[in-house]
Amino acid sequence: MEREVKNLNILSQFCEDFCTIINKHCKYIVVSGFVAIASGRTRGTEDIDLIMERVDFNRFKTIFADLKRSGFVCMQSADVKEIYDYLTENLSVRFTRKNKPLPEMEVKFAKDELDNYQLNTKVKLELTGLGVWFSNINVNLAFKEELLKSPKDLEDAKHLRIVYSELVNEKEINEIKKMIKRLRL
């Protein structure tokens, strides 16, 4: 498999293994801190955030069975219906490999127009060396600068603005910031 020659770190390998499974079944994006970390930011994290499209229960059962078969465990429950209920209530569920408590994949269903926008404008980022789908850089910048705003997030944004300077589009960032104000603030 391709990833065996990529020399990925523990976090990136975990992300790629998990996303390879999700990608077989539905649309998803990796968002937030891991976008910056996979792009070279030197800071720690225990989890990776993933948004997946809302799927019906039968489809989710198939995804869950595939994850289980591949050695992933949900930290909250082993009951697929209970896990699905968390997701439909817009709560996150966390998955790890069955032999380790970390790293975690924190999974949510897309919940609004903003999440759907991210799913529809997903990108692959060559710099990361990963084959996974990320939310686009302008969305990440808007979230970090408009909604999250912690020192860590502002530092992530600074890093992303430099390493992806050719992708930064202030017009799109401002449009997304307006959407954030309307839907999340």
Partner: peptide, 11 residues
């Protein structure tokens, strides 16, 4: 780690 599904982890 807020592990509720303790049976899921052999270790």
């Amino acid at each position: 780690y807020g592990i509720k599904n303790t049976k899921g982890y052999d270790w």
